[in-house]
């Protein structure tokens, strides 16, 4: 999975490409831990993301809980198959998806 970070003032934009699975989720988790300090807006761009599993969902959930205290989190350009995962798991009600 490729993670591209872009920081603009207090906004952190993370673009993911590839698969967010059990293998790659720790990589994203580590990036978030090191990058979300002092950030008031976190944006995920899923335009290049093909696949997400429960390991990835847990990382998103943890990020959402953190950003609930600091500001807000948004997920952009979610494809149909990943949207279905969000719907089935109820994450569509927890996350802000644009």
């Amino acid at each position: 999975m490729t993670i591209t970070k872009n920081v603009d003032h207090n906004t952190l934009r993370i673009t993911l490409e590839g698969r967010l699975d059990t293998n790659t989720a720790p990589q994203l988790e580590a990036e978030l831990k090191s990058s979300t300090g002092g950030i008031s807006e976190l944006i995920f761009d899923f335009s290049g993301l093909d696949y997400i599993s429960s390991a990835g969902l847990r990382v998103l959930l943890a990020a959402q809980k953190t950003m609930n205290k600091q500001g807000k989190m948004t997920i952009l350009h979610v494809n149909e198959t990943i949207m279905e995962v969000f719907e089935i798991t109820g994450f569509v009600d927890i996350l802000t998806i644009a």
Binding site: T22, Y51, S53, A55, T81
Partner: peptide, 17 residues
């Protein structure tokens, strides 16, 4: 279709893990 592909892929990862 992409939905079915995702389901098969997810099943392998989630169940085995």
């Amino acid at each position: 279709n992409p939905r079915q592909v995702m389901r098969i892929s997810l099943a392998i990862e989630e169940v085995m893990t």
